[in-house]
Nucleic acid binder design. Sequence first.
DNA 1: TGCTGTGCACTAGCTTACTAGTGCACTATA
DNA 2: TATAGTGCACTAGTAAGCTAGTGCACAGCA
Lengths: 130, 130
Amino acid sequence: MSVDPNNPIPIYQQITDYIRRSIAAGVYRPGEMIPSLRVLALELTVNPNTVQRAFETLEREGLIHPRKGLGMFVTRHGATSAQSQSRTAVYETFVQGIRAGYDANMTTRRIRGVFEQAARDVATEVRSAK
Amino acid sequence: MSVDPNNPIPIYQQITDYIRRSIAAGVYRPGEMIPSLRVLALELTVNPNTVQRAFETLEREGLIHPRKGLGMFVTRHGATSAQSQSRTAVYETFVQGIRAGYDANMTTRRIRGVFEQAARDVATEVRSAK
DNA sequence: TGCTGTGCACTAGCTTACTAGTGCACTATA
DNA sequence: TATAGTGCACTAGTAAGCTAGTGCACAGCA
């Protein structure tokens, strides 16, 4: 993974999203330890505190929990929680897009068409990235 | 219209979006003048400069153009431009959501399902608002 | 020709968010 | 028992973004 300082999305959130996705995708499994503060900070050339902030939100979300002196571990239900959270995030994004469409006086049919095109485009993009 | 100061989206952008949507929806037609800086500022209880900033972006987008001493007028192709811009905005939002889905290891089928549900939810929400 | 309404430019203050620096308490392990 | 690796708490600086204040030049109209 890498972090883009120029991205308007703050670094700590980029890290949060990345770890959450990794847990959802099964890269880090329940009971496993995720990379430590300093390891991540060193790898991303970022202050440990920035990583810490990402950990806080993930802990608040119930995806990871700390074991004193050891590290952060993926929660028992971390994977399923992460998946359902990812799902709601996707859902919210779609709702936002659809609302914007209606606000701009687009028809349901037209909005659907835009989604289909986006789906095709991203699908080919993902396929070619493999 | 009203403006929400607590909304994380900055006020000037809320105003920008509102006017853009209004032009796309045909509330303000090509050749017509849109409400002036001070009128909008007074109505929204906001500093004229904040409205001014909204005007700048709309002018940069080619939706409105100024006539000295008179006001801001909707461009000849303002309506169609606004519509196509709204369309790209919706498209980009969808792309973002779909990408997030793939990143979280969701299948294409599942992503589609989430969209369908969002579409249904927003549709009923819009219908009941009428 | 004065008055009113228009956009525009300049400055300034403020708040908020983000990142960095640093030290401390805890655990496992040799 | 010493050492190295963990998360965590506190402070502080910095940067950027947003909003407000104010005055100026221009156009129409009575």
